[in-house]
Amino acid sequence: MPEPVGEDLETHLEGLRKAVAEVSRPAQLGRLEINFMQINPVEVDADSARRYAELGVDRLLVYPLPLEDPAEVSAFLQRHADLTR
Rank of each mutant, 00 (worst) to 15 (best):
D58A: 10
L16Y: 11
E22Y: 02
L29H: 07
E68A: 09
P26Q: 10
D82K: 09
V73F: 01
P4V: 08
E3V: 13
P64H: 01
Q78C: 03
L83V: 05
T11L: 11
T11V: 12
G15E: 12
V23W: 08
T11H: 13
A46H: 10
L60W: 00
R51Q: 08
R31N: 10
S24L: 07
L9H: 06
R25K: 09
M1S: 12
M1E: 12
E54P: 02
S48G: 00
D47H: 04
S48Q: 09
E10Q: 13
L13Y: 04
A81V: 09
I34P: 05
R50C: 02
V20I: 15
R51I: 01
E33Q: 13
P4D: 13
Y52G: 02
F76I: 01
A49T: 02
L16T: 10
R17P: 03
A81E: 11
L65S: 06
S74Q: 13
R51Y: 02
P41K: 04
G6A: 15
S24V: 04
A71D: 10
V57Y: 05
P64C: 01
M1P: 09
A46F: 04
R51V: 01
R85P: 15
A53K: 07
L77C: 12
H80C: 02
P70I: 06
A27V: 13
E33W: 10
L83A: 03
